[in-house]
Every structure is written in structure tokens, then in C-alpha cells.
Design a protein around this nucleic acid. Sequence first.
DNA 1: TATCTTCATATCATTAGGTTATGCAATAGC
DNA 2: GCTATTGCATAACCTAATGATATGAAGATA
Lengths: 316, 316
Amino acid sequence: MKIDPRHLEIIAAVVDQGGLTEGATLLGKSQPSVSRSLSMLERRLGINLFQPGRRPLQPTQTCLLLAHEGRKILQAGEAASGVVLHYQRGTNGAVRLAGPPIFMEGVVSGMLASFQSSFPDIRIDQSYCYAAEVFARIESDALDLGIVPVRASEVPDSLIAKQILKGRNVVACRVGHPIARKQAVRLAEIAQFPWIAPPADSPLFHDLRTALESIGVSDIKVGFTGASLSAVINILEGSDALTVLPYSVVFMLRRKKTVDALSIRIGDPDRHLCIVSRRNEVPSPATRRLASFVESEFASFNLLIDRHEQNVVWRS
Amino acid sequence: MKIDPRHLEIIAAVVDQGGLTEGATLLGKSQPSVSRSLSMLERRLGINLFQPGRRPLQPTQTCLLLAHEGRKILQAGEAASGVVLHYQRGTNGAVRLAGPPIFMEGVVSGMLASFQSSFPDIRIDQSYCYAAEVFARIESDALDLGIVPVRASEVPDSLIAKQILKGRNVVACRVGHPIARKQAVRLAEIAQFPWIAPPADSPLFHDLRTALESIGVSDIKVGFTGASLSAVINILEGSDALTVLPYSVVFMLRRKKTVDALSIRIGDPDRHLCIVSRRNEVPSPATRRLASFVESEFASFNLLIDRHEQNVVWRS
DNA sequence: TATCTTCATATCATTAGGTTATGCAATAGC
DNA sequence: GCTATTGCATAACCTAATGATATGAAGATA
């Protein structure tokens, strides 16, 4: 005999409140509704839930047992409401986030770490991919947010991209690199060293070529290729290799005092780091919360960079 | 945001079974019904319970939290079903039982004690009253069962009375009473002793008068009046008083070896002990169980008495 | 690419449950 | 013992959820 859990809730409310009217009030229903629900249930079960003809409604033995179960259901219902409330506040749920590995590892992951400690109940599903795939996955609802360097014209109409960092690349090398000591860097010197190249399909690889072209270097030795920032860093730190990295990534790395940027200005990319999401659909609260967190983190990051810039002279 | 507990059940079932169809089967519903219920809930809550476009339906983070609550509700529902099942088997619930104090205390209470140990979850609400009130209370649904000595003609049409013991009274006295030693009891001797009388409104009082008239005694000394059997016993044991009691009561008391019956036959009452209940209404399972228990106890009690009778000579 | 599995939708019928208004009965108070 | 009050049941009406069957659509798998 399956019983509607709502009926058990009603029983619990009426028993605990000591009356139909009070019980109905607790449940946010009208007294006749509760009365009828109980009558129907009594008839269906063939059980007198309340002693008939008693005015302060007197629960039966069996009714008390059922009320006990009803209380559990009321509690579970409240807990469930709490879950929903948490979700709507954006303090639980999950966000699917993707971006190119260099940016994600170099800049975003640190921000995600502090986000995690503020909102431990939001799960972040992070993956790595480039702009085209990010667009496709967001459009097919396999992704909530993308953090990718893009040109505004690239972004599909169905998506919205908000710029969070101006595109800017630098030549990176290890701290103490022979070329870093020199005041004036000659192009011939740059070309002598081996280079670390990002994967050929990555935007950064494209940036690398155009950047070098912009300073007149056309032919380089590629000593290592890899998509993982940590691999790049390892090579960078342990050799005299050079590479092109986003300035923001090098800026973050500078704290470790193992990697630095050459103070020569290379051509800036026409892609700027954007946070990308669906245009028409309202994102989940957790997604919104993460997005605005990342935006504000980048805002203060920009300030930090600006302040630092005032003390550095870049040669072009 | 109040959530229908049935929806939480559905979530739990679908998550645990790993699919809509299986979940629906568990709940005894059709797959489309479950599908629609979940869709409506998702829209209402504004929460994706399952990742869209995934064929083995993949629950969201929030969905898992809700499923956890749903499981509690499913469990409570099963427990409630168990309660109802118990009730229908008559192994829980409550029975309201009434009868005259002498019979209830002297014979029935012992039976109720063994019933209690067999069915500890059935509560027995016992009270004392005579036939007229028993009838009225059963008819007004303030009582489930009555155990009273009645004439068949007295019983209202709405009630049904099943005889469980033939009416028979005896003169009772303490063991070792002077009159008990004598082979032949003369009427004059009986009249010498003080008598214990039941309350004037009790059937037993009427029996007392007619019984004494039947053996030619018309005038007696009444030394004590009381409705409680234990009070009567106390007086009986501690004095040479006599009284009229149902034979069944004295038969039970004989085990204590303090009270006995005079071996003279007095007029049998025209009331017989019956178990009374409503005729048209189906009694609760617990009521039926108690009624049949009492009936069978009296059946074996009758056998016991019959066997004993073969060894006793009664003088009239 | 084809097929199978699994979920979503359409449509219709049913029914539980929501509301207000009102009747009725049990308790309480005089 | 009579009346007033309180509290529950019933009536009538309506909305909306849910059930069933048939069918469409989209992933997953080979």
C-alpha cells in the first residue's frame, strides 16, 4: 500500500500542530483541503487516523506512527528547499569552464583556487581547448564559460564575449639568461637561442610567428613543442631557450623569480582575452558567480600590471 | 521554494536506477510521466537536474543533493507502508474494550495479559461499564468491543452479540469458611452470615436477589458493597462474609486457594456472557484479532470448567 | 552510416487538490 | 440545561498535475 508522501506530511503537520486549521496553516493550505485529503486517505487505507467525534482531533495509534514518518518527509523537504536556495544564490552547483592551457594554467588557475576556497560547494569542471572548440561546446551546451583570446569578429552571434585582458605577448626567458643582462638586444642574438614553440594549432603559435616577424626575425630554431605551461616553464627554467608567452602569464610567473620577460616590445596580438558565454540563455547562478569573480580578479590584475608598467622601460 | 516530495522521490529513483525508464518502473509509473514531471520541475526551479543532451541521463551536482533527500522520502514512505501493513494484519492499532468490573477483573484481564505479550503493539483501552452503557458507547463509536452478560433480547439490532460463556452464579466464600465444611447447608445458616453485595445497578446485584430467592432466602445482612472485584475478594478472604459471583470468576480465583464456592446450586441467571460489537461496520483488524483471541480463550476456558465439573457434586 | 536505446512530446482523460461558502457537531461558559 | 463559540466536514467549482498510448527525435554503438 503505497502512500502519497504529501499525505504523510499532512498527517505530521496536523498531529504536531494539534488541529486541522493549524496544520493547514503550517503547510500553507486551507483547512477544508487538509480535511478532505485526510478523509480520502482514511477511506482508502481503511484506517481511522483520528478518533471520530472528538473535537480536539485525537490521533489514532497508527496515525502517530505515520506522523513520525511524515516528520522525516517534512525535514527532507526543507533540506531540499535549502539545496535549491543554495543553488539560486550560486553557492552550489557546477560550472564547466574551458580555455587554452597556457592562460588557464598560468593565470586562471590561481583565481579558481581562491574561488574554490570561497565557494567550496561549487564544483568546477575545467578543460583545455582553443577558441573554435570553446565556441562549439558552449553553443552545444557542453560548456558554461570559456576564457579565450579572441578577435571580436570571431565570436558567433549566439555568444557574448567580454574582454578581461588586453592581448599582449612578450619574449620570455629564464632569470639570469645571458641575453637578459644586455641593455640592447640585437636580433641576431635572439635568433641564436633555441625556441620553445606552442602547438601549431594554437593561437599562441600564430602570435609567435607574427611577433618574430614584427621584429624582423624569420627563421628560428625550435627546440621544444608542447601545450602544457608547466612543460614550457620547465624547459625555460632549465635552459637558455626563449619563447613567446602572454605577458600576464609571465607577470604571474615572476613571483617565482625563475622566469622573466625580455624588455623588448613585440607586436601585440589582435586577440584579447575574453570570457565567453551564451548570449540568450540565462546562466546558472553558480556560473554567473564564477564569471563575475573572474572578471573582478582580472580587473585587479590589470591594475597590478598597470602599476608595474610605470617602473619599466620597454624598448621596441 | 517548496518542492513536492513526490518529485524528490522521482529524482532519487531516476538517479539511483540510472535511467528514466528504470526509475519509472521502480515507482510504478510510465516513462513519459516521469520525464514530464522532471521537465516541469526543472523549468520551475530553473535548475538543470540532468546534463542536457546526454543519453545515459547524467545527474547534475544539485540533482544529486536533491536525490539524497528523495531517498529519505522513499524510505519514510516504505516505513509508512509497513505501518499500514501492520495495521491491516491487526498487529498494531488500538482496541477500546469495556465490560463490568467483576468479569473484566476476574476473567478477562488475565486473557488480555497474554494477548498483550503476543501483540505488544496493540494498545488496549479498557474501561468498566454495564450492558446499557456498553451498547450506547459501541453505537456511538466510543467503543470497539464489549464483554457483558446480556439477554439476547436486550441487544440492539445494530449490534451483534456472540455468547462466549453460559451464565452461572455461585455462592462464594473464603476457603475454610465454617459453612463450607458442612455436607448439607441449611438456608437458615446461609442467612446468618453477612453478605457482600455488588452495586445496586449491576446485573450481579439482580442475580444475587433472584438467586437467594430461588433457594428461599429473602432477607440478608449486607455488610459491604463495592464494584471492584479486588475489594470484594479482600473482604471475602478476611471475613466469613458470603457473596454471589459468576462461577467463572470463582473458578479463576480458586488457583489462589483463598476463595471457594459453596457446592449448592442456585438459580442460573438468564444473562450469558457475550462479546458485543457493531453489526454492520467492519471492525479494525486489531479489534477482530482481539475478539477472536478472547473467544478462543473462553472456548478453552469452558472446556476446563466442563472437565472440572465431572468431579464435583452440586446440591440443589 | 545504420540501428538501437533512451528520452521527449502530443493528445486526451482522469482525478487529486485548491478555493470559498456554509453546515454541523462538540466543547465551554453561564 | 441552554446558548455561544470553536473546529471540522461538506458542497460546488475549477485548475493543474499526472496517467496512458502513440510517436518523434537524438545519442550511443557498432
